[in-house]
Simulated scan of single mutants.
Amino acid sequence: MADVRFTGHAVEALRKKGIAEEDVISALQSPDIRAVDMLTGHFVAVRKNGRWLVVVYDAAHGGIEVITVYEVSRKTQIERRIKRGRWVEA
């Protein structure tokens, strides 16, 4: 896997939400859903791990830069973004 770096915001999100870096890397390596956020242009990887882990990232400098990470409890929150065209599956 490419070099993975975390922004300061992503590091803070991991700390606040108690999410492990290993879970983020796992979501990047084998996501259940991979999409592009049409509003921001960022990539999104989603993986079910108890709750739905959403990783927002960019390809930068030959690697991956994780911008933020969060969890959602219902898949419908993800499906709604896809249905409305906010996220386009890649």
Rank of each mutant, 00 (worst) to 15 (best):
V55M: 12
H61Y: 07
S26W: 02
A27T: 09
L14D: 03
I19D: 02
P31K: 02
L14A: 04
A35M: 05
A2I: 09
V55N: 11
R86G: 03
R74H: 12
I67N: 09
G62V: 03
V46K: 06
G85R: 10
D37R: 14
E22N: 08
L39M: 13
G63A: 06
N49C: 15
A59K: 11
L14Y: 00
I19E: 04
L39A: 13
E21S: 08
Q77S: 15
A35H: 00
F6G: 00
T7Q: 06
H61K: 08
S73T: 14
E65Y: 14
R15C: 04
K83P: 02
S26Y: 04
A10T: 02
W87L: 06
P31E: 09
T40E: 11
I33R: 01
G63S: 04
K75L: 14
S30Y: 11
W52K: 08
A35F: 00
R51C: 15
N49R: 15
Y57S: 02
D58K: 14
K17H: 12
V11I: 11
Y70C: 11
V72A: 12
A60L: 13
A35R: 01
I67V: 13
R81V: 03
K83M: 07
V36C: 11
F43V: 10
A2M: 09
V88E: 14
P31Y: 08
